[in-house]
Nucleic acid binder design. Structure first.
Lengths: 175, 175
DNA sequence: TTTTCCATGTAACTCGTTACATGATTTC
DNA sequence: GAAATCATGTAACGAGTTACATGGAAAA
């Protein structure tokens, strides 16, 4: 249900952290997994605190701005494990925008379609490369596992696209 | 950019229709492609009319409620083709909730993880069957093409999951 | 005669993003 | 001395969903 909460609790399970740290981590390491923005994270962390899932301690380092350090408590740990279990069990059809245009390719001349799909192919290749470029010091488990799945799906997408392009090309030659 | 508009214009490209008809079509035939709800569609159709992309004619059949029949005009046709081209060219990483839990499997005993992932497998199988059950009178092109892609991705997902489960099982045996 | 279908619409709400505000501190 | 970093937060906005309202007609 609450995937944002799962992400935040999961990050905090590794160690207590303050919001800024968490947001840095999300931006730097989870950009391929989630779009969660800072404002959303800060708000969610407060909600998790109000719900009694995380504790807050305020710390200060010299004259730097004070920071709220969040840590998962027992209730939060249970909640996390429950959310995790649900997430692992679940599988839903993702409504992928990439499907939409495919429904209507008959309205475009086949040559145009092929040209557009080849551009799509290129973008997929770039995505694949950007995923490969992610440092894989944690590539067996943790974040790396999620990236591994993304790569598998990208590969399948790319292969499917190739055969579609081929079909369209042979169809053109038949004229 | 505007995928809802693309869907509605695409549906209207086939023939002029009134809102109720369009919503029926979406519910019955596009449930695997989009989640768009009635209120959203009605609102969007009005917006497309205000934007000058679709024309409205009011018709009445006997004593039934009057209906607004929407049809794509020339400007709308151009817009549709532009949106279509953009959509076909595009490919972005889908942020799939199914990735999230994978990052945290180390917090759960391997046996629990395996059990949960097997449940996920089952759900994927069910999704595959439900896609196969969609009448494929239009399965070479049109909606069928989008469903074909979904099936390819589901298959890849399922295969990836299987190898992950296997890895986890052999890991357990090593104890 | 109650339910379902036809046909459209709107008001309230949720979730999340954008954009901005603050203020000290280190870096260029 | 200007810019980037640290650290948190809020107000305004937008897209979309939920839930409801309407009212006649057909089906059960």
């Amino acid at each position: 249900m609450n995937n944002r909460a799962l992400i935040l609790l999961g990050i905090l399970m590794a160690q207590r952290q303050h919001g800024y740290q968490i947001n840095e981590f999300i931006e730097r390491n989870l950009s391929n997994i989630t779009d969660m923005k800072k404002a959303t994270a800060y708000g969610m962390l407060d909600k998790l605190n109000q719900g009694g899932y995380v504790d807050i301690e305020i710390e200060q380092d010299g004259n730097r701005p004070p920071r709220k350090v969040y840590s998962v408590n027992d209730k939060g740990r249970d909640y996390f494990l429950e959310l995790l279990k649900q997430n692992l069990e679940n599988s839903e059809l993702v409504k992928d925008p990439a499907d939409i245009g495919l429904m209507f390719i008959d309205y475009l001349p086949p040559k145009h379609v092929i040209a557009s799909l080849k551009k799509r192919q290129l973008k997929i290749k770039r995505l694949q490369e950007s995923l490969k470029a992610v440092p894989h010091h944690n590539h067996v488990t943790g974040v790396g596992l999620a990236l591994d799945r993304s790569q598998a799906l990208l590969k399948a997408d790319s292969e499917w696209l190739s055969t579609l392009i081929q079909k369209l090309e042979t169809k053109i030659e038949e004229d």
